[in-house]
Amino acid sequence: MIEVYNLHKEFDGVPVLKGITTTFEKGKTNMIIGQSGSGKTVFLKCLLGLQVPEKGIISFDGRKHTELDIKSHRQLRQEIGMVFQGGALYDSLTVEENIMFPLQMFTENSKEEMLERVNVVLNRVNLENANKKFPAELSGGMQKRVAIARAIVMNPKYLFCDEPNSGLDPNTAIVIDNLIQEITKEYNIITVINSHDMNSVMEIGEKIIFLKDGVKAWEGTNKEIFETENEAIVKFVYSSNLFKKVRDAYLKKTK
């Protein structure tokens, strides 16, 4: 379980996160939602330890960031897989080399063993015949698949995804969403996904945290989003007419 307690983060005196408290459980797809600029990425980077919060406790199965020395921090990071918003693939390396990179860095496996593992994860994300390609030669959806493959190649216990389906067409977006959810279940890991896409929230959001003005304005499941009267979230989610209709239909059906 990842526990976050009273997390504060500011930039040059401007607060972005003003005391976030929540938990993320194993085997669940947790989602952080909120407007662009609401601090989702900053929140995730604090979890990852890429940014240092001013205040607050972050604990990964009992291991608190602040109490770890550099070595155990690096150890913890090897248990984390991260899918960055833009993919963040190393553009001087081929797909195969990108995915193999953590293995080369942290294992003593032979080249054959590493390549075998690379093919296993590439298979898992349904990407074949792309081994020798460079990231720039891939479509957005394929880049995301490679990024996911790289994130899971070390068998992480924690998987973080920053807007994994931004910039993808709706079909591909759903495929990527489902892929992340399947991986979460299959490997029984803790997954945290940033998103502002209501489609994926409804599709795979088992626990949803809504960030607004630096605080957690709402928390619940994707079913509960339909039923909540919370003004902030209703306003955020139902700024789209389509979702308004979906919600009305849902509420009518359940009454």
């Binding site: 991260m82 960055f84 833009g86 190393y90 953590p102």
Partner: peptide, 18 residues
């Protein structure tokens, strides 16, 4: 080359890997 890695989060990706 390093700056591009920074703004496209490739450096973050390295750090995340430990």
């Amino acid at each position: 080359s390093i700056g591009t890695m920074r703004v496209t989060e490739q450096i973050d990706a390295l750090e995340v890997m430990g």
